[in-house]
Design a protein around this nucleic acid. Structure first.
Lengths: 234, 234
DNA sequence: TCAATGCTTCGCCCATGATCGAAGCATGAA
DNA sequence: TTCATGCTTCGATCATGGGCGAAGCATTGA
């Protein structure tokens, strides 16, 4: 009967284990080469090449040539959001995934979601910003308030440097592990970049997990912790 | 490298055309039998039976036996939301789907999304309710305000009859055609049921499309139209 | 020009799984 | 009991497509 868009095409693209691994690796937001993705996916180079062509033709990933390297990224935030949503389904229904190793715990705590902070800490941050009125929801679109502007400026983010594109400044993204929304969009991206720049957090090589430094933990708690709001001046 | 949940398993389930058709048919929110779903999917009964078993084992659909019939439904709203998100990806990236027939237009205008109203009219309704302060976003969870309670009571919805379950009363669901959120959750479901009960709208047989009656169009516009807010008392 | 690197294309093998006809097994009706 | 309906299971077929080795092409560097 075929009503609506052809979801089977897209789902089948994501449905191959090798391709799912490739997409998951690209959720780190980094541009990766074909060889790196082959290693991530656990397949040979010819196989990965074939998969990458299909993913590109399907519009899920984008390609940027640079010399004799070819860098691949997710084609946009919408793809990342669908992948997170799928992870939510897989984590929930999927027979309580084998054994949740220590790596999984790190992922649940803090990880990159395409280009912004996700996991418990991402959710905490978003909720704190909502609770303190830094971000409000105006009839369906998230907006950064003046108080919010002052706040993130205090964290060292320069709003003026953000590209004034049509991409929304703030955006919600549903977290697969916490099952609540965290902050995506340009602001989410800028804040995460700032955490890295400030030395609050570091990416983990070859993983989406984010390790916060002791200094970063403290600073994050002061900025976004439950107590933070009341204690800050105390 | 296998980080996070096993999305390939879920995506592969959705990725078969026959299964995708089955899931799409179940987006109507109605419980359908194996034979009906076989017809929807365009495959034989044994094939459909096999698919249904896989979908159920994968946790995407639920089964309710009744006499010698076996009724299938989506296993929950989360599955519906993932399907809608996939439709968004497929509609956007997918080479501008063949020809958007008249049926597609009807779907874009108004359709069922599992159990609530989606499409342009769904988005209009949600935005009107947000704009008038009937529904607000309190730190990440949608809440029905007192004004909102009065409003929907005026439409004939009896809040007291809604099951007091842990399922959220209000919830956003991203619309694949309009690319904006519409109202899901118990409230979305109740409102849609009320439209049907009031005779404002009718389901289209064998389709997710919703046909509003002339009376319904007028009533809907008065209740949720842009002018409605200012004109209502005029 | 020659070599090295990065990736793609080709050809082949092979496993998975989608499909259906026929038979089997329930449930309900006569 | 006997038949009809609704669905599942079995068995066999067959197409799709994932996988890799080898060869080919492009870019860079010497």
């Amino acid at each position: 009967m075929k009503e609506g868009p052809d979801i089977a095409r897209i789902a089948a693209l994501i449905g191959d284990p090798a391709r799912a691994n490739i997409l998951t690796a690209l959720m780190s937001g980094k541009a990766l080469t074909a060889s790196e993705l082959a290693a991530e996916a656990g397949v040979g180079l010819p196989t990965a090449s074939s998969h990458l062509r299909k993913l590109e033709e399907g519009g899920l990933i984008a390609l940027r040539k640079s010399g004799r390297h070819r860098y691949f990224t997710l084609s946009g935030g919408e793809v990342a959001r669908v992948l997170e949503a799928l992870m939510g389904l897989a984590a929930g229904h999927g027979h309580v995934r084998s054994r949740t190793g220590p790596k999984d715990n790190a992922l649940r705590r803090a990880r990159v979601c395409y280009n912004h902070l996700a996991g418990e800490m991402g959710v905490e941050m978003y909720q704190a910003m909502r609770a303190r009125g830094f971000v409000t929801d105006e009839g369906g679109t998230l907006t950064l308030t003046q108080a919010g502007e002052r706040f993130i400026t205090g964290l060292g983010v320069d709003l003026a440097t953000l590209p004034r594109s049509r991409a929304p400044l703030c955006r919600e993204c549903l977290d697969w592990s916490a099952r609540q929304s965290h902050l995506a969009g340009q602001l989410g991206r800028a804040l995460f970049a700032q955490f890295i720049a400030n030395g609050w957090a570091r990416r983990t090589e070859g993983s989406r997990a984010i390790r916060f430094t002791p200094v970063g933990e403290t600073a994050f708690a002061r900025a976004f912790g439950r107590d933070g709001a009341t204690v800050s001046t105390g």
